[in-house]
Structure formats: structure tokens, C-alpha cells
Nucleic acid binder design. Structure first.
Lengths: 68, 68
DNA sequence: TTGTGACTTTAAGTCCGTG
DNA sequence: CCACGGACTTAAAGTCACA
């Protein structure tokens, strides 16, 4: 519940830092746009394989997505 | 696929460092013992909420479980 | 450009057990 | 103490039309 929100905020922050829209990022990471939207809003509970895809798309270590 | 193995190895290493059996750790972290077994062997794809439970049980930040 | 509800398919996660 | 399997319930993965 709480960790999901953290992941979502980290993703959103890092994505915007990269200057990417959700749609652009979705394409880069190979995940559907609406799914990315759900992760950012903390309503999805992604698995580690999804976390890895997101991290690769952002160019950061996967662990960064779990930072406080 | 690869990230799962990493998580499993990290969990196993940290759990053994704590001197805990899978069963003891499963109880501490509130996860079923057979599931812990599967995560350690890399055949499970845990969600971030499970990752958090595991990290709390180990007393480490959740991101540590994703270390290389 | 993003949020949302609804949906089907796949896998997460639990519980019983065995060697 | 652990790997592993079968059967099961719940939730995630993945997609869509529309606001």
C-alpha cells in the first residue's frame, strides 16, 4: 500500500526528469501506457520483473524505485 | 527472470546471515514458507508488497534485495 | 497528455502434503 | 531443514474505449 505509492512517485519523478511523457516512456519500457499510469498512481502492485523493465526504461538501478 | 534470481540469492544470503531457517523467517515476515522457498530459488516473481515484507523481516531497506 | 472502469488471461500467493 | 508438487483462491498482467 505504502511501498506502491513510493514506487509510483519515484517513477513519476524520474520519468519527468527525463522529459518523457507516459506514452513515450511506455514505449521505451515495453509496458502499456495505462499500466504505467496505474503504477504512478500507486493503484498497481508491480512484480519485480515489471520493476526491472521500468528501471531499464529510466536508466536507473531497480532498487532506486523503492527509495523513500 | 534474472532479477528474480538476484532477489532469491540476496534473500537467502541475508536470511542465513541472520541465522534463520526458512520456516522461522516465513513466520517473522508473515509469508508462507513454501513461497519463501520459491522466491529463494528464483521461480517466483514477487510483488513490491512482498518485497517490503521480506525486507522488514530481514531488517534491510527493500532496495537491497535488488542489488547485483 | 493522462485518468479510469471494465474486462480476460496469467500468475501471485496459500495450504495441503512428500522425499 | 529444505526442495518440490498439486490444488486452490486471489490478484497482477495486459489491453481497450472513453472522459
Amino acid at each position: 500500500m505504502e511501498v506502491r505509492r513510493r514506487v509510483g512517485l519515484n517513477l513519476k519523478r524520474l520519468r519527468i526528469e527525463k522529459g518523457l511523457s507516459q506514452e513515450e516512456f511506455a514505449f521505451r519500457s515495453g509496458i502499456h501506457r495505462t499500466y504505467i499510469s496505474g503504477v504512478e498512481r500507486g493503484i498497481r502492485n508491480p512484480t519485480v520483473t515489471i520493476l526491472e523493465k521500468i528501471a531499464i526504461g529510466l536508466g536507473v538501478p531497480a532498487g532506486r524505485l523503492l527509495d523513500d
